[in-house]
Write a protein that binds this DNA or RNA. Structure first.
Lengths: 150, 150
DNA sequence: TTACATGCAAAGCATTTGCAGATAA
DNA sequence: TTATCTGCAAATGCTTTGCATGTAA
């Protein structure tokens, strides 16, 4: 059921997402709507499949992990969210639609958005013909002590 | 067995690596020596565990994958190589000891080093107290066509 | 009605771990 | 000798897939 917020805010990220789904012939099923709400009605997020799975349960609903993974992949293909690979055992999904990069603090397993203007890329080695589709920048910082001596 | 190259080039990356091993009480076993040779006597490389496994076999030797993974992890802890997580199912290990960042071309599964001077990081949001141990920057570019329409 | 979605369990895959046997010092 | 290392196979953990069932249009 629609609430007033959505009725009077036709350009919300949630509504844009739903529009994009139908524009691509993808059915607005119960599961997709629940996930879209969690992703797009809570501000900018960096969230994992497992996190979403838990949030769905907290609402006393249930969506299988497989469906969550498949939906996240689909939303990513549609450009509704961005996947950030922070380490080999975890992908996070980012709902910030503005142009930005990511700062990953390994010790805390935490991701912070960095405005694009804060990083100047000067990469003459990219062939001019490459026609970039997307550029992700992950700045990974560690504060760990060295484990071995010099 | 040592060859002339090593005898007369005491500052080679290979020798530095071996020195670091013994400085940390880590035995220069047959397996570690073979891996160190492959890593440090072939110039700058971006190589996976599986790649190394294959290269060892090409020399008609055999080191188990488990040992290769463990050794790579250990060399990384020692700071001899750097791990680059290019996607969730693959880590590459980089033998370039100079300060640099990484450009990952997803379509080609290829990594190129970027000199640090080509990227200006201006990240006021990092708390000053954090005392960075290391900063990895991965610029991930895609040239794929969009799969879905707008 | 029917093409598309979902959920479950099983499969996949890179990586890690437990442990018995091997090896360096 | 003995602490460390290696190799195998099994375990792990995230993610994907096959397929039977369910559902939107």
């Amino acid at each position: 059921m629609l609430d007033h917020n959505k009725i009077y805010n036709p350009l919300s990220n949630f509504n844009k997402a739903i529009n994009k789904l139908s524009a691509n012939g993808i059915r607005p099923t119960k599961q997709r709507m629940i996930l879209a709400k969690l992703l797009f009605e809570k501000g900018k997020r960096h969230i994992s499949a497992e996190d979403l799975f838990d949030e769905v349960r907290e609402e006393d609903r249930k969506i299988s992990l497989a469906t969550i993974y498949n939906t996240l992949k689909q939303f990513t293909s549609l450009g509704l969210i961005r996947e950030i690979v922070v380490d080999q055992n975890k992908s996070l999904y980012c709902t910030n639609k503005e142009s930005h990069y990511h700062l990953y603090i390994e010790d805390e397993n935490k991701v912070i958005d960095i405005p694009t203007k804060n990083i100047d890329l000067n990469i003459p080695s990219i062939p001019a013909c490459l026609k970039l589709h997307d550029v992700d920048v992950i700045v990974r910082i560690r504060t760990l002590k060295e484990k071995y001596k010099n």
